[in-house]
Simulated assay, not measured.
Amino acid sequence: MRLSCAYALALLSLAGPAVAAQPPGLPKRVGTCVFSTVRNVSARLEDGSGRPVPESGTSISLANGLYGVSYSRVAAAQNARRGDRVLACLVSIPRHCPPGDDRGRIYTTTNLRTMESWTLPDSQHMCGGA
C-alpha cells in the first residue's frame, strides 16, 4: 500500500505505533510515500581501512532499499539511528534519462523519532552523469 505524504503523516498521527507495516519497495510516483526503518547511517566515503570519512558527506540506507547520499554533512540524517522508523516520500524523478539509468530520484525522508526531515538524491550523480 502506497500513501500520499500528507495522508501518511495524518494517518500516523492518528494511529501512532499501530501503523507499523512497511510496504515493500520504494515509492514509484512523485508524491507517494512509504514507511521503512533506518538500516545504516554513515559518511559518503570510507578510508582505506573501512572507517567513515566524516568530511566526505552523508550516506543513509533504509530497510526497503532506499539510499540517500550527499557531498555535504546532513545533520538531520546523521541524527538518525539504526532501527528508527521513517516516512520516505518521492519528490522528484529526473527526465530524459538514458534507458536503464534511473539515478537521480530525490526523496524527502522524515525520521518519526526525531521528527527531523532531509531531502537527498539516491545517487551521487544524476542520470546520464559520471
Rank of each mutant, 00 (worst) to 15 (best):
M1T: 13
M1P: 00
R2F: 10
S4Q: 07
S4W: 02
C5A: 12
C5Q: 10
A6P: 00
Y7A: 13
L9K: 13
L9V: 06
A10V: 09
L12E: 15
S13D: 15
L14K: 15
A15K: 14
G16K: 14
G16M: 12
A18W: 11
A20S: 14
A21T: 04
Q22D: 12
Q22T: 12
P23V: 13
P24H: 06
P24V: 12
P24N: 12
P24G: 13
G25I: 06
G25L: 06
R29E: 11
R29G: 01
R29K: 13
V30W: 11
V30F: 11
T32I: 01
C33W: 04
C33H: 05
C33M: 07
F35V: 12
T37K: 14
V38R: 11
N40R: 14
V41P: 10
V41M: 10
S42G: 15
S42Y: 08
A43G: 11
E46V: 12
E46L: 07
E46I: 09
E46T: 02
D47M: 00
G48A: 14
G48P: 04
G48C: 05
S49F: 01
V53Y: 01
S56K: 09
G57A: 10
G57Q: 10
S59W: 03
S61E: 15
A63H: 08
A63K: 08
N64P: 09
N64G: 08
G65S: 09
G65T: 00
L66D: 04
V69M: 13
V69N: 11
S70Y: 07
S70E: 05
S70V: 05
R73A: 14
R73N: 12
R73L: 11
V74Q: 09
A75C: 03
A76K: 01
A77D: 10
A77G: 10
A80C: 15
D84P: 02
R85H: 05
L87Y: 01
L87P: 02
L87F: 08
A88W: 06
V91Q: 13
S92I: 00
S92F: 13
P94T: 02
P94H: 02
R95A: 03
C97D: 05
P98K: 01
G100R: 00
D101P: 01
D102Q: 07
R103T: 06
R103L: 03
G104A: 06
G104H: 07
R105N: 08
I106T: 15
T108E: 15
T108S: 13
T108N: 08
T108F: 02
T109C: 04
L112C: 02
L112S: 04
L112P: 04
R113S: 03
T114M: 04
M115W: 10
E116G: 02
E116Y: 02
E116H: 06
S117H: 01
L120Y: 04
L120Q: 03
L120A: 03
P121C: 03
D122H: 03
S123F: 01
H125A: 04
H125I: 00
M126L: 09
C127H: 03
C127V: 08
G128D: 01
G128F: 01
G129S: 08
G129I: 02
